[in-house]
Design a binder for these strands. Structure first.
Lengths: 325, 325
DNA sequence: GCCGGCTTTGTAATCGATTACATCGCACTC
DNA sequence: GAGTGCGATGTAATCGATTACAAAGCCGGC
């Protein structure tokens, strides 16, 4: 019984007679034999592993997506490596995980990498083994799965306007991220469309963390002339904001309406339950992973390159209401 | 210039003359050469990768720990593979990741695996390449990093007793997990020590999710004879509980005090800010990873096997108060 | 001049799975 | 019975890094 035969039983059973196939299968079971993935990877020039690169894994927003990614990849035989907080030098990080044959594909949640660099990734089946998720690389040659951030932001502002608000502020995220920029743009556009003024002093700069939302809320509470509603670029900042203003005796939604973005698990159970734009996070994780694995396995994509924009959904809860009379 | 020399420059530079070392280093830089980890893994019989096995990656409790794990492992050259939701057959999962040489070590957050099976893992430097975190395998031969769950639960209950509560309920987690069981035991012990009755109808069965806490809160709100304080086995359930009772016009902490467990990021910013037992999650992640990598690299451990119990800290916020008069 | 000891570098075997190619055996046909 | 074709299996090369061992070069001492 040669190694070749065993290999054939495992990879292409139809090329082996039924008798030997059963003998081998039985022996595999008996000895508890498991394939050596290192040897396989070396020979096949493929590791059956993908890397997911996120700015901050501790953020529940990303961890939910990771959950979906692993759930999608595991049944197809792929492992998921986590690269957290891309350091100052993304090149080093790419070397460590990608060029050193640790992984075949890349799920990128932080598009602050050099496009030039990424363009030179070795192609797989003529395609870049890379999908950018929840963020955007401007060049259209990259595969991408994201949501309609700008349009969703406009709908969020529209919701506030529809409630009767005319004085609307914004807690925005860091400008380095394109998605945040899009949300900022959407805010701007809809304010303009509604004929409302974007006041500089009602723009709070945050960094997606609860604490930065809290800080924004404190600044808000100390103002003399306040907006009656605030659009926060994510739920964490919205919650931090509400938490802070409540400490100053300001009630949400009675005194100020707050709308968030993402619909994290907590949003529904916060006090007050948070009005927000729901991102289909499960879909973001699953569809991007599916696309990446299809690239790696030479399965045709729906489009080439793959560009998918999912739609966010307005979820009205109790943190928004008409402005005080 | 032979491949052997290049390999030596990279792994043990002192065995190569300075002249060639520099020539090789320069050539490596110029060609952008990167080591092939698959080949290295095959030859060295080590992948420089560890697996982290968690019940539910979407839970922010775990994702914060994952963050710490990756942060600790990356600088030591180790990759982190994520295995989510161990399926019905943990054996299959162990085969896929561990025995197939995809990973060298195992960080296990769910001790519902068969101890017998785990005992037969191939030893590395005479030690099991396995650390159980936040959960407990009873057999003392396993390496373990956890917190003083039972004692911390006693302190939580003690806090409620000190505030004057005599009627105390419990939202508990699934009994399959040892850590949950410990918290349950701690609750029981301290109730007993304080001479208080553990009433069956005040025990709410949850599953660590917000929703199960919410369900518990609803059942609580509909009761005629209620406890004045509740100890929830984790913060998610505590928050779900408060969220539910508030919907029934029951105020926390005026009508009912609630104490949680973990101190997730949200706890501080919830309304009311949550009193809770803080788990040193960063330490849990870092110390367990450090121990596992030391095992893999033959570095001596502080103890053999490695058993570390970290201390939880009572964080008093606004969700607990003396009982209503 | 010769030898031992030392550093430096090259040679070749090795890790385990895959796969092109060769070989073997069997059945079927003329 | 020789030849043809096909399916099943074995043989050996391959992937790229590591490392035991060999070899070569160099130095100094006697």
């Amino acid at each position: 019984m040669s190694a070749a035969t065993v290999s054939r039983v495992l990879s292409s059973p139809e090329r082996v007679s039924e008798a030997t196939r059963e003998r081998v299968t039985e022996a595999v079971r008996a000895t508890g034999y498991t394939i050596n993935q290192a040897a396989r990877s070396l020979r096949m020039r493929a590791t059956r592993t993908i890397v997911i690169a996120v700015p901050n894994m501790g953020n529940p927003y990303y961890s939910t997506i990771l959950d979906a990614v692993v759930t999608e990849a595991a049944p197809r035989g792929y492992g998921v490596l986590v690269a957290n907080r891309l350091g100052d030098d993304p090149t080093e990080w790419l070397r460590d995980y990608f060029f050193s044959n640790r992984a075949d594909g890349l799920l990128l949640f932080d598009a602050s990498l050099d496009e030039e660099e990424l363009s030179h990734l070795p192609l797989v089946h003529g395609r870049l083994p890379l999908v950018v998720v929840c963020d955007e690389l401007l060049a259209p040659r990259f595969n991408m799965v994201t949501t309609d951030n700008a349009a969703a932001s406009r709908r969020a502002v529209r919701h506030l306007v529809d409630l009767g608000h005319r004085r609307i502020g914004n807690v925005r995220g860091r400008q380095v991220k394109n998605l945040t920029n899009e949300r900022w743009l959407g805010f701007h556009e809809e304010m303009h469309a509604a004929g409302l003024e974007v006041r500089e002093d009602w723009i709070f700069q945050g960094d997606h963390s609860i604490d930065s939302g809290y800080e924004a809320g404190r600044r808000f509470a100390r103002m003399r002339d306040r907006p009656t509603a605030v659009f926060a670029a994510n739920d964490e900042m919205a919650i931090g904001f509400i938490s802070a203003v409540q400490g100053y005796g300001i009630s949400c939604p009675r005194d100020v309406s707050v709308i968030g973005f993402d619909d994290i698990t907590m949003a529904k159970h916060y006090t007050p339950p948070l009005t927000t734009m729901r991102q289909p996070r499960d879909q973001l994780g699953r569809r991007s992973t599916e696309a990446l694995l299809n690239i790696l396995e030479g399965v045709p994509l729906e489009s080439e390159p793959f560009r998918l924009v999912l739609t966010c959904e307005l979820v009205v809860r109790a943190s928004t209401a008409p402005p005080p009379a």
